[in-house]
Design a protein around this nucleic acid. Structure first.
Lengths: 210, 210
DNA sequence: CTTGGATCTGACCATTGTCAAGTTGAATCG
DNA sequence: CGATTCAACTTGACAATGGTCAGATCCAAG
């Protein structure tokens, strides 16, 4: 709560921008994306409710900045999972690792994930967000291209769509599940995730010309 | 806008419950789930701002009733797609038709679909909603069981998860796409959907014991 | 020390959801 | 047929939110 002593260049607050983004993370984790209010963020940062305006413009700007950060973290999670593989790993392992990285991120940050896709709360015209969102698709993209190098555009599109939809859909359903009780309970969850990935890999690796 | 002349048993309004649900549908279609307010619904129905209370309790009650209706419509769309098949259709055709019914519903009602999965706006403890949501999974379930009758529990779970996540994930991404520009443009959309279904069917139909 | 500009405060407004209390009107009962 | 009853609806009020704006405040450069 106390002002960070470094106060690097900032006038009153140590780093209000950071503090507000952290407040968003806190609230999202505690009570979900819809519980985030500008005033509560300001309260947690110890500032007045309109202190955020110079930094983020309005609430949507704050949410967009937060979502942008999370998109970067998601991409880094996937890249880290791939980087942890042995050098001689098969392309299929790369794709699987990418999927596991995605799923692990959402398992550990379900509320952050839900916020990232609340396109009503974020400014989709923001260039930084657009780039972060776009780059978050790169790991899956490159892994898939390495797995099926001979596929033509259409076959590649179909495989990317299936992989993306399958992993994303799984995560979406799981992230909503605690509230709706319509998905697999936690013990089964890991098993189902692995089996789903295996089916997905088999489907994508089949010869597209067959 | 005028009161329906029948006025079947209702006191003041012809059928306020129906009128309010229709207002939700209108607003959701025009401006998305987050634009729905109790007061605007009441305005469109031509009643006072708290007229909804006796019928739905609070806003969440109204949203829940609406989501319940949409879940039923979604299930009916899938059942209709299966029923339109020739009697001798292969089980794989049943599964594909189920997926097509799901996708067609979301293509035609993207905003309604988005609302259905906004578990923060609906009361997931409502028994009617829970039953409608549960029954909406039946068509996919039965089609899958018919396609892979020999699969054990684990293999069946994995296939159901993949099919459900794949179709649902595809629809989720598409329903958000108009706002985020991160999915395929409409001309490709139908093609990608068909190819995705084909990959999905192939993945699910493979012998689970192989 | 002065000046400038970024940073933050406090107050205002419109809007929302919810609640309590009143009003209406249709159906029921004597 | 008239009085009663009860749910449907209206009215008015409340707290909370987001956005905006004038102005106070503070840091840093000159």
């Amino acid at each position: 709560m106390s002002v960070t002593p470094k106060a690097r260049g900032r006038h009153h607050h140590g780093d209000l921008r950071r503090a507000l983004l952290d407040a968003v993370a806190e609230i999202v984790q505690e009570s979900g994306p819809e519980a985030v209010t500008l005033r509560e963020c300001a309260r947690r940062a110890g500032v007045s409710h309109s202190a955020a305006t110079p930094h983020f413009g309005d609430k949507r700007g704050l949410m967009t900045a937060f979502a942008t950060e999370q998109s970067q973290r998601l991409r880094e999670a996937m890249e880290a999972a791939v980087a942890a593989l042995p050098a001689e790993a098969h392309p299929a392992e790369h794709l699987a690792a990418t999927g596991r990285g995605y799923m692990a991120f959402v398992r550990d940050n379900p509320a952050h994930f839900r916020l990232m896709f609340r396109t009503d709360l974020i400014d989709t015209a923001d260039p930084a967000w657009a780039e972060a969102s776009s780059r978050a698709r790169d790991p899956l993209d490159t892994a898939m291209r390495a797995l099926v190098p001979g596929a033509d555009d259409r076959a590649m599109r179909a495989r990317l769509a299936l992989a993306w939809a399958g992993v994303h859909g799984f995560c979406t359903l799981r992230a909503e599940a605690p509230r709706s009780d319509l998905w697999y309970p936690p013990p089964r969850e890991a098993e189902v995730a692995e089996d789903l990935l295996a089916l997905l890999l088999a489907a994508c690796a089949t010869d597209p010309c067959a």
